[in-house]
Amino acid sequence: MQIRLNQVSADYQLGPVHSPRVLQDVSLQIAPGTFTAVVGPTGAGKSSLLKVLNGLLLPKSGWAEVGDIKIDSKTSKKALKAVRKHIGMVFQFPESQLFAETVEQDISFGPLNFGASPEAAHDLAIKMIRQVGLDESILQQSPFSLSGGQKRRVAIAGVLAQEPEVIALDEPTAGLDPSGKAELMSLFKQWNKCKRLTVILVTHDMETAARYADDAVVMDQGKVVYHGSVRSLFADSEKLNRWQLDVPEARRFQLAFETYSGIRLPNVCLTEEELAEALIGVGRV
């Protein structure tokens, strides 16, 4: 599903007062099936960008396009609902949206709203709870009795159960343990690979961005300042410095290695695996 933003500006209305522009003339195109990381300092407008895609924050000027539905300041509620069916959105700390008596009801909430039959919703709940690495028996428990990490997974399962074509994730792994983090991220990656699901991931963690994403969008003060491949972003130390982005550890090792040894590795290494391979390659020569 093609996503396009054309000169979108947006702000939040607080009674009669408007907040300063949180998005300024943002133009962006995200191709179907890509995995895009959105990075940038806090307050840059990353979460707001996701809200625009989902029709929760309507553009004051310009428009967004999701598939063939256009979102601007006058889009109808019905069209917005259609957009939301296609874009699954996992908010920061999604566990705060759990409300139903049982986990199963909570996961079925989205599918039922979007017109799935109760049987289909039931099957989806079973399928999704397994996908996020939880046991089926949890379906009959109250969501409020679960641990933080379990709640997070249930909330994510609820969004995936909508069977969206695009998922927008706002720091989905913040506060999870390292293995839970890796597990969830590989789940998203696998969906991206096998189902050609478009993934848009907001993250502060450059390791995650480097390991899982293909493309990167850098935001700063409400503007998109970079959109290109992750690899060329991390190749350019000067840009990273300017936007105060961390350098992934493997890449940092590579830079230090190249300075001390005077040997240049053939490509930009973003993960330990790539680095190991490159080093072995150099050693053989």
């Binding site: 959105m89 908010f91 999604p94 705060s96 949206q97 709203n113 979007f114 609820g158 969004v159």
Partner: peptide, 16 residues
């Protein structure tokens, strides 16, 4: 703020 956040999250899940 919290009400707004939760409303957004439920709207994203198709609530009207």
């Amino acid at each position: 703020d919290e009400t707004q956040r939760i409303m957004d999250a439920q709207k994203a899940r198709g609530a009207v």
